Amino acid sequence: MDKETKQKEERIKAEKNTVRAIINNYKGLAGSLAQQLTLKTPNHHVTTGSHREEVWKSLFVQMVPRKFHIEQGVFIIDSEGHISDEVDLAIFDENYTPYIFKFGKIKFIPIEAVAVAVQCKSSNINGAEDWAKSIKRLLPAFDSVTRLFSGLNYSSLKTVTQEQAQTATRPILILCSLVGTGNPAKPSREDTKQHENTKDFDIILNVDENNQLSKVIPNEKWDYSKWYEELNHYDLDRYEEEEKSVYKKLVKRSGAFGKTIQELEIDKEGENVILSLTFQLNQLLMLINNPMFFPHQSYVNMFREHLINTNSVGKEQTGAKSGGTK
């Protein structure tokens, strides 16, 4: 064997060892994550809720692209004034979308900006389904003025006639829990009862009593085209009849791709949860791609309406008091 061939083989061997080390590192990361989430402390049976959220947050920080920001403990709001239940972790665009309100630990983020919403639960996931529905009821607004490569663009239900790639996005919903065996193939009776509350979630991460991290994606066999419509044109029947009719005409359909995120599973046994999730979650984020352009006017109109109503009530109350003193 000549020197050049030997060097080539050694390089190939070193590269294979590096890839194996990356795979093993992800397995070790899963174990470390599980241990942190179930760490017992002198004053608590398990780690506190806020600490668990920090641990889960650390996972997503190293997983999602830097174009997104991750905030802990927020409320999501829409331009109709609807507000979600508190969201443990929100992954959202912070470059082009303003906070509706941010002061200290109180944060309100517009629904148009949010790409992922995460609910962190311990061994009891009661209420998870209601939490998910409080987000799915929010109504993104299609009304923006933006500079695109073609120039200044005004998009609204009144002006746009061509089909759109996004009309009403919704966040990817993730449940992070510490429930039972965590084995969807062999669920215990309590697992089955608990996971009835997870049907509204896209991804379920669970650490079981044996410190094993598992992942369930109920709709992992959906074609990418199905995910595209679910995340970019979500449930247009929620809107009023006139808006709904226009929205449905604007939906840009996509033919079946013949590909699913199940194909992004690293190993059939599902042992390398975090490495698989890295590709699967980022693929879903790429199907949303960018959050919707922020509809400034819609939110301004909402605040104006509340301001007018508040002033009217104030005047009525002042008039009533004045009338009572005559």
Rank of each mutant, 00 (worst) to 15 (best):
K13D: 11
R238D: 08
E209D: 12
T278K: 13
K13R: 12
R238E: 08
Q119N: 09
L139S: 05
Q317S: 04
H45I: 15
E9Y: 13
N25V: 05
D237I: 12
Y26G: 05
V61C: 02
H233R: 06
F68H: 03
S144W: 05
G324C: 10
E209I: 13
K13L: 14
K199P: 00
H296E: 09
S155F: 00
K16S: 13
I174A: 04
G258E: 03
S177A: 12
K259A: 13
I109D: 00
T47S: 15
G151P: 01
K121Y: 01
R20H: 04
F60N: 04
D235A: 06
A117M: 06
F293N: 09
T47F: 06
E71Y: 07
Y154S: 06
K57Y: 06
A14E: 11
S177V: 04
G323W: 13
L275M: 09
P98G: 04
P291Y: 06
T5H: 11
K3R: 15
W56V: 12
R137T: 06
M63C: 12
N95C: 12
L152W: 06
L157C: 00
S225L: 05
L173M: 11
A165I: 15
T318P: 02
D2Q: 02
F75M: 04
R189G: 11
E263S: 11
F279T: 03
P218Q: 08
E240N: 03
E53V: 14
L275H: 06
G49D: 15
G324Q: 15
F60T: 05
K13E: 11
K13Q: 11
N311K: 08
G31A: 07
F75H: 13
H296N: 10
L281F: 00
M302G: 07
A30R: 02
Q280F: 05
M292R: 07
L178M: 06
E243N: 09
D143Q: 02
